[in-house]
Design a protein around this nucleic acid. Structure first.
Lengths: 336, 336
DNA sequence: CTGAAAGCGCTTACAG
DNA sequence: CTGAAAGCGCTTACAG
C-alpha cells in the first residue's frame, strides 16, 4: 500500500507538501499538485481514513444502532435519519443488535464514531451512561435514559400517557375496545399499551385485562393469530386497536376469513401508517406517529451536542412539543 | 479524554506496560494489571479504537453496502450475513446508498474496513475495480464484476438463464404465462426477466412482450396495480409469474377484488418465499431463492480472501453449485 | 516482569 | 510556495 511518504520520496518532496497537495490546499502550486496527483495515481495510492481520523480526532461518522434494520415499520425512521445526517455532512453507519450487540458496543466503547443514535433496547442503560461524554453524545430513541450528554425524546414520555387511536375510537362511540399488543421486546408496544390504559381511564372506561390480546410479534402472522382468538368473544367488542399496522393487517385478514365485516361488524385501527395500510380494502384507519419528525429531532440534537450548542437543544425540544400523533381517518372505523 | 499515556504517567509506568496490562497480556503481573485497571476506571479511560486500527493495520470490520436496509425481502440476507460475519469474529457495519452512495464510497476509498460486501447497483463497476486489492477484497452480490480481488457469485449468472418458477408452471400444463416485473433498478428483476424468457424458449414457448407487465416497484401496491392491468386480458392468460412475493401478494389482492379465483381461474407464483406468503389464503406458491446460502457464500469468500486462501474460494464455489432455487409448492398453482 | 523506542499514515502549526 | 518536526493514541519487537 502506497502512502504519502512513498509519493514524497519518489517526487523528492516533503510529506507535508504531498499531504496538502492531496487535500487541494491553496498554498500548494498547481504544478506540484498535478505532479502529486499523477504520482498518486501511478502508485495506486488510496488515502488511509483511519490515519486521518486519528490525527483529526474525529471520524465524521454517526452510528445508528438498531435491533433489526430490515423491519419494515422502521423504514421511515431510517430514511429520515439517513437524510438528516447527510445534510449535516456526516456519514451514517448502521449496526444491528439482532444476533449480538457486540459490534455496537465495540464501536461505542472504542469511540469509532463521533456520536451515536440508539434505537434498540439491547444496549443497557448502564452501558450508555458509562460511555456518553461531551465528545461522544448519544441520542436514545424510544425510551428515556438519564445522564449527561445523553439525549432522548421527552415528548415520547408524554405520548406514553396518551393514545390518539383510543381517543378517536371513543369519540366515535366505541366503548368496548380491545387492544392487540405486539412483541413486548420492541419499544413501541409498552408505550402503546400504557397509552391504551391511560386513555381509557381518562374517559372513564375501566381497563380490563381480558381485552388485551398478544400478537407475540409485530407481524402480519401475529396479528392474524391473535385476532382469531378474539373472534370467539367478538360479540363483546366494538373495536380493536392494534399495536401496529402489520399486526392490524394480519387481523383484518383473519376477520375476512371469518366473514366478519370491517367496519360494519367491528371497527379496527392500527398504528404507524405503513404504505400498505392505504392500499388494502377497506383502507386501514391508523395513527401517524410522525416518526420522521422524531428522527430529525434526534439528529438535530446530536449535531447540536457535537457543536456544544446546548441551548439549541432546548429550543428544538420546545419546538417539538407541537408535533403530536394524529389519526389518519380511513375506512375501518365506523361511527357507532 | 484520558489516554494510556495519562495512566502511565500517574502510575509511573511505561506506556507499553499499560498497553499490555489493558490487553491482559500474560507477561504483566496481576498486581500491575489491577493497578492499571483501577486507574483506567478512575480516569474514565476508554480505548481509542482508531489508534488501534492504525497500528494493527486492520479494522476487524466488514462493510455491507445496500441500497435500502429496510426492504423486507432483504431481511433474510442481512440476517444471514450478520451471523456469518460474527462467526468469523468480525464486526459488520451497514451503509445505505438510498439517498447517496457518498458514505459507502468514502468508506471504501479510505480503507475504513477490511473488506466489503456490495449488494446494490449504486456503486459503479469502475469504482469497485479501482479500489479492490489484496488487502481489501470485495464481494459483489447480485451481479458480476470482473477484476482481481473482486468476487461474485458465478452461479447467479447461470441462474439468470433459468427460472424454476416458469419451469414449474409449464410442467403443470400452463402455457400462456404472464410475467410481472418489479423495479428494473433492483438486481433481481432483470435476472428474473431473463430467466422467464429463457425458460419459455427452452420449452418451445414463444416469448411475447405483451405478456410482460410492470409493477414499477417491488411492492404490494405495484403488484396490485399491475395486476389490475392484466385483468382486462385475463382470458388469454393461464398463469402469472411475479418477480417477487410482495408484488405477488398485491396481485392476489387485486384478483380477489375482481372476484377472480386463485388458483381456479388463474394460477400464480411468486419468488423469494417471504414469511407472509405462507400465511395468506390461499397460501402463495413461490420460489425459494436460497438467499441464506448465497449470503454465507459471500462471507466465506471474503474471509478466505482476507486469509489469502484463494484455493478455498474455488472449493466453496464448487460446493455451491449444488444450491439451486426450487419451488415451494403451496396453493396458488393448479394443474391445468 | 517492565520500559524506551520506533512506527502505523496522516495533518498541522511553524519556520523558512 | 515548500519542508522538518511534532504528534494523534496506540502496539510491538527488543532490550534489560
Amino acid at each position: 500500500m502506497a502512502t504519502i511518504k512513498d509519493i514524497a520520496r519518489e517526487l523528492n518532496l516533503g510529506v507535508s507538501t504531498v499531504s496538502m497537495a492531496l487535500n487541494d490546499n491553496s498554498r500548494i502550486s498547481q504544478q506540484t499538485k498535478q505532479m502529486v496527483l499523477d504520482k498518486a495515481r501511478e502508485l495506486g495510492y488510496v488515502k488511509n481514513g483511519i490515519a486521518v481520523d486519528l490525527q483529526k480526532k474525529c471520524t465524521n461518522i454517526i452510528l445508528f444502532v438498531v435491533t433489526d434494520a430490515s423491519r419494515s415499520f422502521f423504514s421511515k425512521t431510517l430514511h429520515a435519519i439517513q437524510e438528516r445526517v447527510a445534510s449535516y455532512g456526516y456519514d451514517l453507519l448502521i449496526a444491528t443488535t439482532q444476533s449480538s450487540s457486540r459490534t455496537a458496543k465495540r464501536f461505542i466503547s472504542e469511540h469509532r464514531a463521533d456520536g451515536v443514535i440508539i434505537y434498540t433496547n439491547q444496549i443497557e442503560d448502564e452501558f450508555i451512561q458509562a460511555y456518553a461524554r461531551e465528545d461522544f453524545p448519544m441520542y436514545i430513541m424510544g425510551h428515556h435514559v438519564e445522564g449527561d450528554y445523553i439525549f432522548s425524546d421527552d415528548i415520547q414520555r408524554y405520548a406514553s400517557d396518551y393514545s390518539a387511536a383510543v381517543e378517536y375510537l371513543i369519540a366515535k362511540g366505541h366503548k368496548r375496545i380491545a387492544f392487540v399488543k405486539g412483541s413486548m421486546k420492541t419499544l413501541g408496544t409498552p408505550r402503546r399499551l400504557s397509552g391504551y390504559k391511560n386513555t381509557l381511564l381518562k374517559f372513564g372506561i375501566p381497563y380490563r385485562e381480558e381485552l388485551v390480546f398478544d400478537a407475540g410479534s409485530n407481524t402480519f402472522a401475529g396479528g392474524y393469530d391473535a385476532t382469531m382468538n378474539i373472534i370467539d368473544q367478538i360479540e363483546n367488542i366494538d373495536a380493536i386497536y392494534y399495536s401496529n399496522d402489520d399486526i392490524a393487517l394480519g387481523g383484518m385478514r383473519a376477520l375476512q376469513h371469518r366473514n366478519i365485516q370491517v367496519p360494519d361488524d367491528i371497527s379496527i385501527i392500527g398504528s404507524n401508517n405503513l404504505p400498505e395500510s392505504s392500499l388494502v380494502s377497506p383502507a386501514l384507519t391508523t395513527v401517524d406517529l410522525q416518526v420522521e419528525k422524531g428522527a430529525y429531532f434526534a439528529v438535530d440534537c446530536l449535531m447540536h451536542a457535537l457543536n456544544k450548542e446546548y441551548d439549541e437543544i432546548q429550543k428544538a425540544k420546545d419546538h417539538r412539543k407541537n408535533d403530536i400523533e394524529h389519526v389518519v381517518e380511513r375506512e375501518t372505523v365506523k361511527e357507532k
